[in-house]
Each structure stands twice: as C-alpha cells, then as structure tokens.
Computed example of a mutant assay.
Amino acid sequence: MEFFTSYDGLALAFRTLGDGPPLLCLPGGPGRAAEYLGDLGGLSAHRTLILPDTRGTGASAMPPDLASCRVDLLVADVEALRCHLGLDRVDLLGHSAGGSLAMLYAAAHPDRLDSLTLVTPSFAAVGLPSGNGAEEVIAARAAEPWHTEAVTAHGHMMAANTFAEAASYRFAFEPLMYGRWDDAARAHAAADPTQRSLPVSEHYYRDYTPDSQGLRRRLQALRCPVLLLAGEVDLWPTAKSASDAAPLFSNATLAIQPGAGHYPWLDDPQAFTATVAGFLARPVPVSGGW
C-alpha cells in the first residue's frame, strides 16, 4: 500500500498491481474500498492497475468534514493522485459510482485523459437514469432459486432512505447483481460490509445537483476514446440505460457483455479482459486528435 497527500492535506491510499502501462481505476460502492476490484479479471496482465481507496474508505484517512466525500469534490483527489504519480495524461477506468466520478473528472480535465473506460457506471453524476427496464431484467431471471427472496430484498432496498437502512437487505438482494450466483459471487458479496464505509456512502451524492446540460456538453466534446461496458443482466445500469447514455460521448464504443451483471470481470473474466484490453490497445492519438 502506498500513500499520497491530497489537496487538503488528507493522507489517501492506493496500491498498484500488475504490469504494463498504468490504468487508474476508480472504485464504486459508493464508499467501497478498491479491494473488491481484485485484479479486474486478469486485466493486470495487460496493465499496471492503480487502485485508490476513496477518502474515508479502506486505508485512506477519514476526512474531518464528510462533505468532502461528495462525488464532484472527489475530482480533486483524482487529480492529486495523477500529479503524485507524475503522469501527464492517464487512462482512466471507473466502476459503478466510480464511473460517475470518472465522468466528472473527464469533464473537468479533458486534457489529462488518453482514454475513459466506464464499467457498469452510474449515470447519477450527469442526471441520467440507470434503471430503465430493470423490472424486465428482474422478471427474466424468475427461474433462479434465489429469485423470490432477492426480489423481496430489492423492494426493501428501494424503499430505504439511507445506505444504513438498506444494509441488512443487501446480501439477500445481491444475486440480482451477478450473472452467476456461484461461490465466487457469494464470497465477493459477503465481503461488502467489511469493505464499505457507510458514512462515505451516505455523503457521496448528498447535496449534489448535476449541471446536466454543462456536463453533457463537456462530455460530448471529449476527444479521447470512451468505452462504455454494461452487463446484459445488470440492474444499475441496465443495458438499456447504458445504450441510452452512449450518445453522451462523440467517440464511444458500447459493449454489452452477455450474461454479465454489475461485476462483469467476475462473471466472465476472459470476455471482460478481452474487451477492455482490446480497447486500451488502440493506437495512441497523435497531433492532438484521432
């Protein structure tokens, strides 16, 4: 584990894993330590993964003011890490709520990106829905033995007002977030409570109101290539929501991974790695354009 000092003096942690050009990977949750990303299904064989713990999570210090954990303010932590690493430009990956953060970083620092990879991202940062068609996805899995219990838990979670209220229903709900509810998925889901900082979860979007028009204008102007990867059976975002959001970007590749849920590197590591590594292997832009 390594540490750097962010803009406000807070000590934040990150670890590196793998070999190859660096890929900065922003975890989601929101408020879950980057440990849950693992090696992203073997992507570390192609890239050096830089895996930061969001402030207040994992080995990163808890800020005295939790308001600094709001998604738009976390952009400054990402920029501080880029500077600490001495990277003029970065390949940036964001998963889930980390996808929202990655989009905000891209809008604020477009000149610092060589590529943007959004893995099953939340679109809350840009004011777009993530759950279009979710009921159809849930109904299509009705033959699964866990389905009834998971749907009941899903209802409780949707009715909860806080992450803390939803916490007791999360594990029963989790089968809906994986393409396969096997031993690996159960172990991954069971680790959530020990990896999640509920105070950070609660403050991640609190009092955040997106400048939707301004953000969409800046994202549309991005010159770097964008990969938008969704899972076929994911709920947040659904494949439909991801498809609807793809026009946010002028240079986007949309990939829907068959049979995958919210953690596609677990459902089919080979397919996930082939998609992301293939995208990242595209030629580097020259003369400021593609």
Rank of each mutant, 00 (worst) to 15 (best):
D39A: 10
Y169T: 03
L23C: 13
T273P: 11
P30S: 10
G155E: 14
P145W: 09
L74D: 07
V226C: 02
L176D: 12
A274N: 09
A108L: 03
F272V: 00
G278K: 08
A260E: 05
A153T: 02
D183H: 10
V286T: 08
M103T: 03
G94E: 08
I138G: 07
D8F: 13
S44P: 13
T117P: 00
L266H: 12
A106W: 07
L51T: 04
P210I: 01
V151K: 08
D211K: 10
A143S: 13
G58K: 09
A150E: 02
A246D: 02
G261H: 05
E165Y: 14
T209L: 10
Q220I: 00
P199I: 15
H156F: 12
F3M: 13
R32K: 05
T148P: 00
H147M: 03
C69P: 04
L43K: 04
L113M: 08
P193A: 12
G38V: 10
F14N: 04
L51Y: 01
S168M: 10
G131T: 13
G38C: 03
D182Y: 07
Y7E: 05
W146N: 02
Y178A: 09
C224Q: 12
L248Y: 02
D183T: 07
L176Y: 07
T194Q: 13
G179F: 13
Y204N: 07
E79I: 14
D207F: 15
P27Y: 01
Q257G: 13
P30K: 05
E174C: 01
H84I: 15
C83D: 02
D192V: 14
H203W: 07
A153F: 01
L104C: 12
L37R: 06
S130H: 06
L37A: 08
D77A: 12
L228W: 09
T5N: 02
L81R: 02
F173S: 03
P63L: 14
G56M: 06
S168W: 12
P175R: 11
L113K: 04
Y7F: 08
V286C: 08
L40D: 01
L66P: 14
H147F: 15
V276I: 00
H147Q: 07
R170K: 15
H156N: 04
M157V: 14
F123N: 13
G127D: 00
A13F: 10
R141H: 14
G20E: 10
G99C: 06
E79L: 00
L176H: 06
T152D: 02
D8W: 14
P264V: 03
D244P: 02
L219N: 03
S243H: 14
H109D: 09
L17T: 12
A260Y: 03
H46K: 09
S130V: 11
G31M: 05
I256V: 15
A106S: 10
L74H: 11
A102D: 11
A230Q: 09
E232A: 11
Y169M: 02
V233H: 11
